[in-house]
Amino acid sequence: MKPRTVSMYRRGFDFETTMWLFTRLSALIMYLLALIGIVGAFIMGARTQMNLADIIRWTFMPNPSHVLNTNVPDLAPWSTVFWKLMGSAFVFFAAAHGLHGLLSVIEDYLSHPGIRLALRILGVVILLLMSGIGIYMIWTS
């Protein structure tokens, strides 16, 4: 039996579909970032018996302030541009992924167009603000 799938062009690829795909792909990208993060955490702390909480903190956000209480002798090699870029990428993808999730929850439970629009704008503003502050904190702390 011939598959009845319609080609991508005839199906139409609008903004919502793009965001749907982006939500999936950003999840995969965050998996990749967390994988790199956990490898870094093991290299950093395996020999000094770093505990689980610190490993998880570094996995999700490779910021030296997250591992201050460990007995890693020198944190300087871990506050490099590479790890700051990793942290910024995580904030960017997490914020965009979270924003789209928040918008779908709003649209599922609230149907009033005005409330929807207001919450949509509020969500966009708050998440832009949060990712701005988050990336600022990564590069200045």
Binding site: G98, L102, V105, I126, Y136
Partner: peptide, 20 residues
């Protein structure tokens, strides 16, 4: 998935604000 997602959004937002 939905509850967890919302909890993470709130947690991360408050965490960023408290670190700022």
């Amino acid at each position: 998935h939905r509850i967890g997602g919302l909890a993470i959004v709130i947690f991360v937002a408050v965490h960023i604000l408290s670190s700022y």
